[in-house]
Amino acid sequence: MSKEKYTDESEFRELKKLLKDLPKVNTPDNFEFNLMTKIQNKSFEVKSEKKKSWLTWSLTPAITFAMSVFLIFFVFTGEEESEDNPWNTLPQLMEENVAEAEILTVDKDEIREKVVKKEMSKTSKSKNLATSNSIKKDYPFEKKSSINFDEYLQADAPPSSEVGARLAGSQNSNASPFDGFFLRQRRDAQERDSVNKEKDSLSQQEKDENIK
């Protein structure tokens, strides 16, 4: 029965007849003329232009998406390179700070060492100056070390400079050497008077010459 349903000859015979008897609709008389004019003038259909515009419209989202991705890519990569943006450069800055801090501490240590060395050299210079004074001749202290008073008193004579004096009771060689006390050397009163006198006489001479 279903097979019969799909055949033309069954239940739709009258309908088919109606449809077949429908009057034929023809193109207008100037159809061919208009068509050939269009073809010869190459003024082709507007619909194709519409289609082109539709095509461009359909492509526009893809193009805009690609452009935006392109722009975003370059903008973000550019910002990553620049150090101005704190959001992106924060971890880098922290690292840099740590590195700088390390450098600074290293520098500080170096500076400190240098300062200490300088101070040490100054003190050693002053020590050298002090030892090089003529005081050493007057007192039993040598430049190398302090003196062993017990030995000094027992011997009744100054010990050799090479042996070096030590503090009383100190037999330990590891003990730090005592350089002894240093007294400030004062100028002689006589010497001072003589220098003053010379200054006075010189000034007197100058005055005389001016008067003349």
């Binding site: 609709v25 193109t27 207008p28 159809f31 068509l35 269009k38 073809i39 082709f44 259909e45 619909k47």
Partner: peptide, 18 residues
């Protein structure tokens, strides 16, 4: 629609030509 049908047949022929 007669007018629209005429246009469409003309478009068909142009498409066939192109």
């Amino acid at each position: 629609d007669r007018d629209i049908s005429t246009d469409i047949v003309q478009d068909t022929m142009i498409k066939f030509y192109l």
